[in-house]
Design a binder for these strands. Structure first.
Lengths: 337, 337
DNA sequence: CTGTTAGCGCCTTCAA
DNA sequence: TTGAAGGCGCTAACAG
């Protein structure tokens, strides 16, 4: 049985309210009584009961995070940013891991409640308009990280910028024939189609450099290494094959690497390859790639959330996070024809 | 402002207690009033305020997990087991990520409190005797996962078994000259020296098979791929080199693979290699390795914790989890001499 | 079976 | 500056 505020008040010979004031750093306490109270607090190892505090304040002092968090290392890294930022505040973090749609629907229905959390971070999931409406009606601020919705505050990497970075790097090396390989673009009305925006960055860079944007250099298929290998083989056996390939994910870049090996092309001498994501394997294999600010995305999400809580408004917004090019050993100038 | 129990009582024309009884499935309610109350609940979209519930019950309905959770994928997997198991209970999960000693000490001091959590899971950290004493005095059950302490309930992989598995596999393939490579054993009084117990399993398997345990086949050094590469080179340039090497971690196995390449040995034709951990790279490279039941360790930890909470006792215990051998492409019969 | 009442521990007016 | 008292929403005796 931990000591209560009453015990402290008793021991210090003051009223409950005074102890409360001391705990909350109210200036309305004389120095002498403050010290007396603090002595009593120390003696009793007192610390206020969080639950009672929450009930009395009408706040949960808790932030929820709904995350598909074990499916990919990148999600974990974002969550790390959330936790790390929250650790220095008075808020607890409750984690809701989503791996199935049932789980997701359940959490979406049960978690966004005033009496459950003071705010909610949703990572890597683009809500439908209905789901967004539910979030808004919950009365608590909800911030999207690595996703975007017009009705909600969102933090997301700048895919267009990432695509530009990668392409510009190849352009700078002297490449003009650059292929793009990705999974099929999502619905054009989906604001979070990453590969689509990466492609737009690719196109923008090419056009700015006056390089041709060739339809036969765009290959799309299912996600994964194997499909990417097949697509890359098509690219590499073209009459006029590209001298560089930008893959929309590292996984797909691995497929490109395999295809190059099979076709007998050396990387980077004969073919340059750029990936996207900077997964663990990328470093091991020396893959040039684009890295997102994962930790920072979680951090910014929390910052925006805490601000929304403090101001009691959660205006829709969109914040783009910059990306970073990691140059390793799979890119070089094109073969001198 | 969500509806309160009072609103429901009012609308249903009953007393507060009756609503409470309905919420908590008490049999002491007539079917008719129960239905009336439930109708009111539905109409008002009522759901009980968790904070008030906690205060009244004197329980937090919350479990804490202290995890070094972003430093390695395996920790995340264990945490996943914790979350998944808790998801089907009434408990919330608060996550405390530890990446620095300051953070650890702070969490160890602040988190184990009755009014904060009902129970605590500590992952992959072996407490000192003092820390264990603090846990015990906190009055809440604390369960160790992937660690062990004589004063606390613990769940940990059976390292000895893992070492045996790996060695037996090599023995079965016909190897007799098997090297062991690991980081330096921890203090012998540390119950969680994994590489030490893996070595003991290795020795046990060799002895059971009547194979020699040679001192020159045991190499230890700093953790990491590079040191392992150096150690493996020593092993492979021995006058009578081993035909197989068991590395205490996949990372170190990667170093062995590199060393083999440098020395001009083919894997698995000339040299078999077994790792430990089954990291992501292991699958990519086809490394034969030992996999632990990571998810299950978190799950068991929670089960033990919930039981301790229910029974209000947390007797020290130790539960060993089995390990699994994953045979891939780095092991084969030894070269026929 | 059901309603009334007294807390759970803390914060916050309102008086003094 | 300080203390007393009411209330946050719910549960659990205790009477009826």
């Amino acid at each position: 049985m931990p000591a209560t505020i009453r015990d402290v008040a008793h021991k210090a010979g003051v009223g409950l309210a005074t102890v409360s004031r001391v705990i909350n750093n109210s200036p309305l306490v004389s120095e002498t009584t403050r010290q007396r109270v603090q002595a009593a607090i120390a003696e009793l190892h007192y610390s206020p009961n969080p639950t009672a505090r929450r009930l009395s304040l009408g706040k949960t002092l808790t932030i929820g995070a709904i995350v598909p968090f074990f499916t990919r290392p990148s999600f974990v890294e974002r969550l790390r940013g959330v936790e790390g930022t929250l650790a220095d505040t008075a808020y607890d973090l409750i984690v809701f891991n989503v791996e199935t749609v049932e789980r997701r629907d359940r959490y979406f229905a049960e978690v966004p409640r005033r009496d459950r959390v003071d705010g909610l971070i949703v990572v890597s999931f683009t809500p439908t308009d209905e789901q967004a409406a539910v979030f808004r009606q919950s009365g608590i601020p909800v911030v999207l990280v690595d996703a975007r919705h017009p009705a909600l505050p969102s933090v997301m990497e700048d895919c267009l910028h990432g695509g530009q970075l990668a392409t510009q790097h190849l352009l700078n090396l002297g490449h003009r024939r650059i292929g793009y390989l990705s999974d099929v673009f999502d619905d054009p009305f989906n604001f979070t189609s990453r590969s689509r925006f990466r492609y737009e960055g690719y196109v923008a860079a090419l056009e700015a450099a006056g390089a041709p944007v060739r339809a036969d250099y765009l290959k799309q298929g299912a996600h994964g290494r194997e499909p990417a290998r097949a697509l890359a083989t098509e690219l590499l056996t073209l009459p006029e094959r590209p001298t560089a390939i930008f893959a929309a994910s590292d996984t797909q870049a691995l497929g490109v690497l395999e295809a190059a090996r099979e076709v007998g092309l050396r990387v980077p001498e004969d073919l340059s390859v750029v990936g996207y994501d900077d997964i663990e394997l990328a470093e091991y294999l020396g893959l040039t790639t684009v890295r997102q600010l994962l930790y920072e995305s979680g951090q910014r999400g929390v910052e925006i959330l805490l601000e929304a809580i403090a101001l009691d408004v959660a205006a829709p917004s969109y914040e783009a996070l910059p990306t970073e090019l990691i140059v390793r050993r799979t890119t070089a100038p094109p073969p001198t024809a």
